[in-house]
Simulated scan of single mutants.
Amino acid sequence: MALIYTGIQRTVAVLDERSTALEAAQLMTERFIGSVVVTGAARVTGIFTERDLVKRVIAAGRDPSGVRLRDVMRQDPVRVGPRESVGRCLDLMKEHRCRHLLVFDGEECVGIVSLRDLVALMLEEKEQLIQQLTRYITG
């Protein structure tokens, strides 16, 4: 699975729901990411994030090496289509109090978008607008 974002192709981190929270934390640390897509029986079953690690594992006093993702993941994560607007994604994140959305094209998970991705995209769009306005003003 990959999400094309501003010309960069990134592979989405995926772990089986029988994997441990420790394995997820190690993968997220290794890739400098904040979430992993969780699968089971060849389909997406949830998402596990840094926030889930802190709240559902560490703060609960559980041993990350003994906790299975299926027991601490967020089931039925918020989904968007590949052509969803930045504004709508931000609204969904606010409404559902989350920082990651799974991107589905029909029944296939094709990527993930984070709040960081959306902020970077908005900044890029603003920079392009500034350049266009500067060219217009300076002729």
Rank of each mutant, 00 (worst) to 15 (best):
A60E: 15
E30I: 09
A24G: 10
A59E: 08
V57T: 05
F32T: 12
R31Y: 06
T29W: 04
K55H: 11
K55Y: 09
T39H: 00
G40Y: 01
A25Q: 06
R43K: 15
A59V: 05
L27C: 02
G40R: 08
F48N: 03
R56E: 08
L27I: 02
R31K: 15
K55S: 10
G61D: 10
S35C: 15
T49W: 04
T45Y: 01
D63V: 10
F32H: 14
E30R: 15
V38L: 10
A60W: 01
V57H: 01
R51V: 11
D63H: 10
D52S: 08
A24V: 08
K55N: 12
G40E: 02
A42P: 00
G34Y: 08
A42H: 14
G34I: 08
S35N: 10
T45E: 11
E23S: 13
V54E: 02
V44P: 02
G40V: 11
V44F: 00
I33Q: 07
R56M: 04
I58S: 06
L27R: 05
M28N: 07
T29K: 13
S35V: 05
I33N: 08
V37Q: 01
D63N: 15
I33A: 07
L27F: 00
A42L: 11
R62V: 03
R56V: 05
V44T: 15
A59M: 13
E23T: 03
R56I: 08
T49Y: 05
E23I: 01
E30Q: 15
I33M: 09
V54P: 00
L53W: 03
A60H: 12
D52A: 06
T29V: 06
A60G: 06
R62Q: 13
S35Y: 04
D52F: 08
S35I: 01
V36R: 01
V38M: 05
D52H: 03
V38W: 00
G61R: 04
Q26L: 14
I58D: 06
T49S: 13
V44L: 07
V44N: 02
T29N: 12
D52I: 07
G46A: 09
R62W: 10
G61P: 02
T49L: 03
R31M: 12
I47L: 12
D52G: 06
R43Q: 14
R43E: 15
A60M: 13
Q26H: 10
V38I: 13
E50Q: 12
T49P: 07
V44C: 13
R31N: 11
F48I: 02
D63K: 13
V44Q: 03
R62F: 09
D63Y: 10
A25H: 03
G46K: 04
F48Q: 03
T29M: 03
F32A: 14
A60Y: 09
R31P: 00
I33V: 15
R56C: 07
V44H: 01
Q26N: 11
E23Y: 04
D63F: 04
V38A: 10
E50L: 11
R51E: 07
E30S: 15
F32Q: 14
V38P: 04
I58G: 05
V36N: 02
Q26T: 09
G46N: 06
A25K: 02
R31A: 07
E50T: 07
D63Q: 12
I33C: 14
K55M: 10
A59S: 14
D52L: 04
I58A: 06
A25P: 12
A25S: 14
I58V: 15
